[in-house]
Deep mutational scan, measured.
Amino acid sequence: SLSVDNKKFWATVESSEHSFEVPIYAETLDEALELAEWQYVPAGFEVTRVRPCVAP
Rank of each mutant, 00 (worst) to 15 (best):
H18I: 13
F20D: 01
C53H: 12
C53W: 06
F9Y: 09
H18W: 08
P56L: 13
D5G: 15
A32R: 01
C53D: 15
D5E: 10
L35W: 06
S3D: 10
V47S: 01
Y25H: 04
K8W: 15
T12P: 01
T48R: 05
N6A: 07
V54Y: 13
E34R: 15
S19F: 07
F45Q: 01
V50Q: 00
Q39V: 13
N6R: 10
E27Q: 14
E27K: 13
P42Q: 08
K7N: 08
V13W: 02
L33G: 03
A26N: 00
K7I: 11
A32E: 01
G44S: 00
E34K: 15
T48L: 07
A43R: 11
S15Y: 06
G44D: 03
W10M: 10
R51Q: 08
R49M: 15
G44A: 03
V50P: 02
Q39K: 10
E31W: 04
Y25D: 04
P56M: 10
F20C: 07
N6I: 14
V54Q: 09
S16C: 08
V54L: 08
S1Y: 08
S15V: 04
A11P: 01
L29K: 05
Y40D: 02
S19V: 12
N6F: 14
E46T: 14
E31V: 05
Y25Q: 03
C53R: 01
F20Y: 08
S3L: 07
E21P: 01
Y25M: 05
S19K: 12
H18P: 01
T48F: 02
A26W: 01
G44K: 01
H18A: 11
T12S: 05
L2C: 15
W10I: 12
L2V: 12
I24E: 00
A36I: 05
V4Q: 09
P23K: 07
A43N: 09
L33S: 05
E14S: 10
A36L: 07
Y40V: 05
A36T: 04
T48C: 04
E31D: 06
L2T: 12
W38T: 13
T28D: 06
E21H: 07
S1Q: 12
A43Q: 15
K7S: 06
R49Q: 15
F45D: 03
K8I: 14
S19D: 03
C53I: 04
S1N: 12
I24M: 03
P56F: 10
E31F: 04
S1P: 11
F20N: 02
A43K: 14
V22G: 01
Y25R: 04
P52R: 06
P56D: 11
D30N: 10
A26C: 06
S3E: 07
L35N: 04
F45R: 00
L29A: 08
Y40R: 07
E17Y: 13
E27W: 07
L35F: 09
E37S: 12
L2N: 12
F20E: 02
E37T: 08
E46H: 09
V41T: 06
Y25V: 04
S16V: 08
R51M: 07
E46M: 12
E37A: 11
V22L: 04
R51D: 06
G44Q: 03
E27T: 14
W10A: 03
R51G: 06
A36N: 00
F45M: 06
A43D: 09
S3W: 09
P56A: 10
S15A: 05
C53Q: 07
D5A: 14
T48H: 04
T48W: 03
W38E: 13
A43H: 12
A11C: 10
V41S: 10
E17H: 14
V50F: 02
E31M: 11
W38V: 11
E14Q: 11
A11L: 06
A32F: 03
I24V: 06
T48K: 09
Q39S: 07
L35C: 06
E21I: 09
T28W: 03
S3M: 11
C53F: 06
V41Y: 05
Y40Q: 03
E21D: 10
V41E: 06
D5Q: 14
W38Y: 12
P23F: 12
E31K: 14
S3T: 12
V4L: 08
V54E: 07
E46D: 07
A43L: 15
Y25G: 01
R51L: 07
E21F: 06
Q39G: 05
Y40K: 01
T28S: 13
N6C: 15
V54P: 13
E34T: 13
P42F: 06
R49Y: 14
P42C: 09
V4H: 07
E17V: 10
V50D: 02
L2M: 10
V22A: 04
L33C: 07
L29P: 05
A32W: 03
L2Y: 09
W10H: 03
E27R: 11
Y40N: 04
A55K: 11
S19W: 12
S1R: 05
E17D: 12
S1D: 13
E21W: 05
S19N: 05
C53P: 04
K7A: 09
V54A: 13
P42L: 07
S3C: 15
A26F: 01
V47K: 00
P56N: 13
L29N: 02
C53Y: 06
F9K: 00
A11V: 15
L2A: 09
E14W: 12
V22K: 02
F45C: 06
V4K: 13
P52N: 05
L35A: 06
P52V: 10
A26S: 03
V54C: 10
V4I: 13
Q39M: 15
S3F: 08
S16Q: 11
Y40M: 03
D30Y: 10
E21S: 06
S19P: 01
S16F: 10
W10S: 03
A32T: 00
D30H: 12
T48Y: 02
P52T: 06
V13S: 02
P56T: 12
E27A: 13
H18R: 09
Y40T: 05
E14Y: 08
C53K: 01
S16I: 08
F20K: 04
S16H: 10
L35R: 11
L2F: 13
S19M: 07
K7G: 06
